[in-house]
Nucleic acid binder design. Structure first.
Lengths: 131, 131
DNA sequence: GCTTGACCTTGTAGTTGCTACAAGGTGCAT
DNA sequence: ATGCACCTTGTAGCAACTACAAGGTCAAGC
């Protein structure tokens, strides 16, 4: 499998795949006679894993941890569990933050009833000091 | 007002303030005899505005737009309004995305009933191909 | 008057996770 | 043999900071 094929199969750009290899996230591929990268099904599975984890919001560092963990089949599951739990917490915090952001923006919109910027409360509200 | 004081007052690092100046987001400050930046209350208001807008999720480019708009007090409010509306839509979309992320992570957590990584469904699920 | 320490200056490089070239080599169809 | 899509390496860029390094300034304390 050449890099373009793997790219298509995983919805990843070829440049990103090479970047993962450089970063040690993916193992280096074999090379053909003409120096093209030649990928196996293992690579496909690994890249799928990486992309899925990234989509779930795990950082590269976390993906590295997950990959390391998934290699040691005999270790207890607890650490993987812990990583997922952390990620879930982060996501939940982001949702909370964004929700209050949304409320502020809605307030901002409602405050704009004048029709000239000079009277527009939006610009004013933004210039208020922090609480 | 020196940069450290302004930094403290706005919850911004001094380096970030200098960065804003370099980027033209903030006007350059006066200098003291010893070449220290010397800020006015106008700078304080401007920086407060910028930080608040950034906290609300506006990009630097959008902040630039807002600043330009707020300078021309005679233009209709519509343009500011439009920016806020766009921003609100983005935030709402992010909330939707993160919510489904959260659901997936919860599912993932629940799927882990084994106690060895070799049998861990989390690791398995991550390796599944994309839908 | 001299040192200590907190502050300030500029400039440059690092961060995260890619993305976008540029300049050239390869493979295959026409 | 020519075109075209693909591949290679290397380097630079993106956002929005953040982190030095190497040096200048200022007020306080001894």
């Amino acid at each position: 499998m050449r890099i373009g094929e793997l790219a298509k199969a995983t919805g990843t750009k070829a440049e990103t795949i090479r970047y993962y290899e450089r970063e040690g996230i993916l193992p280096a591929a074999d090379r053909t006679d003409s120096n093209y990268r030649d990928y196996s099904d293992n690579h496909l599975a690994a890249l799928t894993f990486v992309r899925r984890a990234r989509q779930l919001g795990f950082s590269m560092a976390q993906v590295r941890e997950l990959l390391a963990l998934s290699d040691s089949a005999d270790k207890p599951c607890q650490e993987v569990d812990e990583l997922v739990r952390e990620q879930l917490e982060e996501v939940e915090q982001k949702i909370v933050d964004l929700s209050s952001l949304r409320n502020e923006l809605r307030l901002l919109l409602r405050s704009c009833e004048a029709n000239r910027i000079g009277e527009c409360r939006i610009v004013e509200s933004l210039a208020l000091p922090f609480k």
